[in-house]
Design a protein around this nucleic acid. Structure first.
Ligand SMILES: [Zn+2]
Ligand SMILES: [Zn+2]
Ligand SMILES: [Zn+2]
Ligand SMILES: [Zn+2]
Lengths: 148, 148
DNA sequence: CTAACCCCTAAAGTATACTTCAGGGTCAAG
DNA sequence: CTTGACCCTGAAGTATACTTTAGGGGTTAG
């Protein structure tokens, strides 16, 4: 049985984070001692590392809560877990696609910018000022059905 | 001179967003009428579209405030603007790299998961429970100098 | 005994970009 | 004169994952 500080040290998180995880239902406390101090079993440290590893690959705490439920549920199947992973992969691919598109547009603009002279003739600012909504599709900032 | 509602419609944002932009110093009001209603010049709509376009390519409102300052500053050079764009490109590349790394790890795990059977033998949960910190480098969740 | 260090709670703050709420004037039409 | 659409302010709420603050008790070494 460990105090919160020791669990925090071994898990690589702060005690505040541990209390936060407890509030959020991610880590359970085994019990309390006479002073009201939290006592943790050693599975707590494993649990915290699970959480941190899951965060490292992109799961949110909400996701992780679900993963922990699956892990604890003897009726759950491997398939459920893989489903979560695949969903997360799709989310990431969507985010990557958005970022790639933005990066590519910015890169084009940066290439067009002469890098000298006044801002009044900067093609980047021009591009931002004028329409570019049809470019590559799906970047509309205007209300639908209203041309310029 | 336009009321806030008309500017919102033409700009494709809500009136609350406009008031928010005003508080944040992104859009100036030309004046007020006798009732205290905001009156906007028609450059306001252009300004809002600038903001929206800049967001579409990944600039934050903070970035955009700087871009607007540069745009308004006759002493600023094109170079400054390009600098912001290139910095943003680097930020995006960093984010993309992180996402790619996470995606690739998850994809490997998902491929290893048999997708049948109980969660107790799921390689994804196994991977999350056990160490994977040395994999691909730089994913440590542990405090430095503390092995297992 | 007291400093240093551990623990406790509840609430508020952080960052971002807004939205929603509460409460209340203004204006044109019918 | 009322209805509905519009405008105003200031404050709080949203989502995420924590951190910080405020205020206070417990334990141990010197
Ligand atoms: Zn599995
Ligand atoms: Zn646009
Ligand atoms: Zn330029
Ligand atoms: Zn790790």
């Amino acid at each position: 049985m460990l105090n919160i500080g020791e669990v925090a040290r071994r898990g690589g998180v702060s005690v505040e984070t541990l209390r936060y995880y407890e509030r959020e239902g991610l880590v359970e406390v085994a019990g309390r001692n006479a002073n009201g101090y939290r006592r943790y079993g050693d599975d707590a440290v494993r649990q915290i590392r699970f959480i941190k590893h899951a965060q490292e690959v992109g799961f949110t705490l909400k996701d992780i809560k679900e993963l922990l439920s699956l892990k604890a549920d003897p009726g759950a199947s491997c398939c459920d877990v893989r489903g979560r992973a695949e969903e997360k992969i799709r989310e990431m691919e969507a985010k990557i696609a958005v970022l790639e598109r933005m990066r590519s547009i910015l890169a084009d603009w940066a290439a067009a910018c002469p890098d000298t002279g006044p801002v009044s003739r900067c093609p980047i600012l021009d591009a931002l000022e004028n329409e570019m909504d049809e470019r590559r599709g799906g970047m509309s900032c205007l209300p639908p059905g209203r041309g310029a």
